[in-house]
Amino acid sequence: MISFGKAYEAVMAERWTLAAETVRLDDACGRYLAQLVVADRPLPPYDRATMDGIAICHRDFRDGHREYRIQGMARAGDPRHRLSGAGNCIEIATGAVLPEGADTVVRYEDLLSSAGAFTIQSDPSEGQSIHPAGSDADAGSVLLEPGTRIGPSEIAVLASVGVGKPKVYSLPAVTLVSTGDELVDVDQKPEPHQIRKSNTRALRAALTEFGIVPEEIHLADDPQIIRMELEKVLSEPGILLLSGGVSKGKFDYLPEVLEALGVRKCFHRVAQRPGKPFWFGVGAGGENLVFSFPGNPVSTFLSFHLYFRDWLLKSFGFDNNGQQARLIAPAENTSGLTQFRLATVENREGTLWAAEVPMNSSGDFLSLARAEGFLCIEPTKSGYAKGATVKWIPFKFK
């Protein structure tokens, strides 16, 4: 049995270098960027009006002009107009190019309209209501780094600089494997000795964060069937996420079968709770990784978020530095195991404060629905005082 820290390092050490692929911009949301994105021109590309009103030369106002004759109208999308003559103005729409010769925009709310003219009824500052060219970014400035998760705001950035087909990291093939004769499909009515499959449902849902649609198989507790089916899966490059069959029971055949199929065991059993029986290995040639999670629902769920999710983010080039939270109440852990405890958090002036959620056992999947993540409580003789800072692994995001 190895420590949680060493187990985590062993998994991260097997990070894959995923190939880049090009996708349509409309299909890029949720993917991870595999290219550097730079500004192809200054942003904004011109001095831009931020209010509807009139564009004037502020020197005219300083010289005493209050009434301004309307010379024209500048709309968004118009080529640049030219303001000429003292005491003249050009009406301007939000988003329009500031006319040549103008340096100030006065909003309509501060104007009195008359025939062919406007009278300023405020004291405008020179340069007000203008978004200067290049004030957001110079041409050539780096806007997005590789490893950035593409969301709606990143889509806007990509579109604004003409990246209609961004390069993103490819998605690994993933197969979900459930084991156990006690499991039946979700739409079946279980017998008293059976339970419905929930672990693979939860893992499939968790994979949607990355746009991964996994294959899925179920294995009966028969070593020959397990070997035959896993041999097929391991014949193609990809990731196996297994749930159950890795403890020390008489019907937990997976560790023996996986090693017989040439999967190199990196470790089996971790000094943590829940999730102690976790098994991790690398297939022949490094083309497969096997994450074999314990079958209890909380153990499977934790192991996915703790190990596989961070491994995948690292393979996407995303540096997951982790989050921290402060304890609302004191905590103890003298077990010698790294404990992961369900909790909810609240944000108090930028600091996360965590309150533990009661859990009966690692089989208590109902507690997952009441929680938002896991607190990492390392073993210590001194305990944790109220307000102590610990690692926070979220699985729900407000």
Rank of each mutant, 00 (worst) to 15 (best):
Y8R: 12
Y8E: 09
E9D: 11
R15C: 08
R15K: 15
A19W: 07
A20D: 11
E21P: 04
V23N: 05
R24A: 14
G30R: 02
Y32C: 08
Q35T: 10
P44H: 06
Y46I: 03
G53Y: 00
G53D: 05
A55E: 01
C57S: 11
F61V: 01
E67N: 13
R69K: 15
I70R: 04
Q71L: 09
R75T: 07
R82H: 15
S84I: 12
G87D: 05
G87Q: 07
E91A: 06
T94G: 05
L98S: 00
T104G: 02
V105E: 00
L111A: 03
L112V: 12
S113K: 15
S129Y: 09
S129D: 08
S129K: 08
D136E: 15
V161G: 02
G162T: 04
P166M: 09
P166A: 08
Y169S: 08
S178R: 03
T179I: 07
E182R: 10
D185N: 14
D185A: 15
D187K: 10
Q194W: 09
A202S: 13
E209I: 11
E209T: 15
E209L: 12
V213Q: 11
Q224F: 13
P237I: 07
L241V: 05
L241E: 03
L242K: 03
V246H: 01
G249H: 02
K250T: 12
P255S: 10
L258D: 00
L258R: 01
K265C: 14
F267G: 02
R269E: 13
A271S: 14
G295E: 05
P297W: 05
S303Y: 07
L306Q: 06
S315P: 02
G322S: 07
A325D: 00
R326V: 07
I328W: 08
A329E: 13
L337C: 06
R341Y: 05
A343K: 01
E346R: 13
R348E: 13
L352P: 00
L352R: 07
A355G: 13
S361P: 03
D364Y: 06
L366Y: 14
S367A: 15
L368T: 02
R370S: 12
R370M: 14
A371W: 00
G373S: 07
G373F: 01
L375G: 00
G383A: 08
A385W: 10
T389D: 06
I393F: 09
I393G: 04
F395R: 02
K396F: 10
K396Y: 05
